[in-house]
């Protein structure tokens, strides 16, 4: 796995680790308490139970603390998401068309490819369109995804940070060959990209990635 492959990786992984940390702590707490109680207050050891009907202070504590925690989680998630929606104005726009079961990429100069080639360190905006059923454009390494739906103009954007080859998958079930609807994304240095973009033939070497 390439860390920091796109500008969103840090945010998404950050939210993940934040929630994971809190969750692990509480999960361990709950599990340990259950196990300890089950051992300590076993019928053999503790034949007589004590009837405690409740405790208002505790109820308030474990209502308020989770509320604060989840509002924090909400904000963190929303903050990260906001960035994903705002594509910079100077983005390099590429049209993506999904149909059963291939992706097609159309560049501003009219060039059409079945793999996505982008320069690094430059915002790329993908305009997503479907010709038949719902698909979902998913680049796992970049932590981004957007559904591709007929009659609806969706888009997503990203900045690729590192030269490399990444998988593009379809994440919305779309029929027989759904699991084969993979494509590749090649992130190239700006000058390499210019060379590729300017060349007419499709056979430019893409081995520069990895």
């Amino acid at each position: 796995m390439i860390l920091n492959a796109s500008n969103f990786v840090k945010e998404v992984d950050g939210v993940f680790l934040f929630i994971l940390g809190i969750s692990l702590f509480l999960l361990v707490l709950i599990t340990v308490l259950m196990v300890v109680f089950v051992i300590k207050f076993n019928r053999k050891r503790n034949p007589r139970s004590k009837n405690i009907k409740g405790n208002m202070a505790l109820e308030i504590i474990w209502t308020v603390i989770p509320t604060l925690l989840v509002v924090g989680m909400f904000y963190y998630g929303w903050y990260g998401y906001k960035k994903m929606t705002a594509a910079p104005k100077d983005s390099f726009e590429i049209n993506v068309t999904g149909r059963m079961w291939v992706w097609e990429f159309t560049y501003p100069n009219g060039r059409k490819t079945d793999t996505l080639v982008v320069p690094i360190n430059k915002p790329i905006k993908l305009n997503l369109n479907s010709l038949d059923v719902n698909h979902s454009f998913f680049i796992p390494a970049f932590r981004i995804k957007k559904d591709v739906i007929p009659n609806k103009n969706n888009y997503l954007w990203f900045i690729s940070n590192e030269v490399g080859v990444y998988d593009i998958a379809c994440a919305e079930y779309c029929g027989l060959r759904h699991s084969y609807m993979y494509s590749k994304l090649y992130s190239l240095h700006q000058n390499e990209f210019e060379k590729w973009y300017g060349s007419v033939s499709d056979t430019v070497s893409l081995k520069t990635g990895k």
């Binding site: 998404v12 929630i19 989840v70 989680m73 963190y76 998401y81 979902s136 981004i144 995804k145 994440a171």
Partner: peptide, 15 residues
Amino acid sequence: LMQGALALNIHIHDT
């Protein structure tokens, strides 16, 4: 909860 967080949901949705 992880899926409720928007930024994270985008990544793990439909996986």
